[in-house]
């Protein structure tokens, strides 16, 4: 995340819709000046917007009375928070020890090539975002990845193309 995160512009562009902004302000209002609620507010905000753009982080910082540096520190620390839009299909590939020894790096390689993205990024068509995570708790089935709520086990690089096409087709319908 760190390399490309440096390139975020300085200007605070307003990208939320009015509805989103009102809903976000309602969430914040419930936690006004409660710095301890930061993580749960960020969580709700991400549910609402899909990710945590700068505008959201600043509104949360201001509303909860938390320094913006701390908000950004928390957002970048926890992998569940995203600072860029996520794809319609969120791929989380496990690279825990078991999956690693069972070939997760080769799966990752192929996913990067198929989607044209690096971990943390979203494909140009906005369909897929790719993340590498630690243990998903299915070590016996490794390498494992999830696409949204679907679990895919015993992945083989050569079958990934078909698997992704399946999702593309559901999108086309």
């Amino acid at each position: 995340m760190s390399q490309s995160a440096c390139c975020q512009g300085a200007a605070l562009s307003e990208i939320l819709t009015d509805d989103q902004r009102n809903a976000l302000d309602a969430i914040i209002a419930e936690h006004r000046n409660s710095p301890a609620d930061l993580i749960s507010v960020l969580h709700e905000a991400q549910e609402l917007v899909g990710y945590l753009p700068q505008e959201v982080q600043v509104r949360v910082a201001e509303g909860l009375g938390v320094p913006i540096s701390e908000v950004y520190g928390v957002v970048t620390f926890y992998s569940l928070f995203a600072t860029r839009p996520r794809g319609k299909f969120k791929i989380s590939l496990c690279n825990g020890t078991a999956c690693y020894v069972r070939g997760a790096p080769r799966v990752l390689d192929r996913l990067e090539r198929e989607l044209g993205v690096k971990p943390g990024d979203t494909s140009a068509d906005g369909l897929f975002s790719l993340d590498v995570v630690r243990c998903l708790g299915a070590c016996g089935l490794g390498p494992v990845m999830t696409v949204n709520a679907d679990v895919h086990a015993r992945l083989k690089p050569d079958r990934l193309g078909g698997l992704l096409d399946g999702y593309r087709r559901t999108e086309g319908q």
């Binding site: 995340m1 760190s2 995160a5 440096c6 975020q8 300085a10 700068q54 982080q57 320094p67 913006i68 540096s69 701390e70 908000v71 950004y72 520190g73 970048t76 620390f77 992998s79």
Partner: peptide
């Protein structure tokens, strides 16, 4: 300033780098 990111990517920086 604050510590941003995690693991090997950790860096002390202002908000939004």
């Amino acid at each position: 300033i604050q510590t941003m990111e995690r693991g090997f990517d950790t860096v002390v920086a202002p908000a939004f780098h």
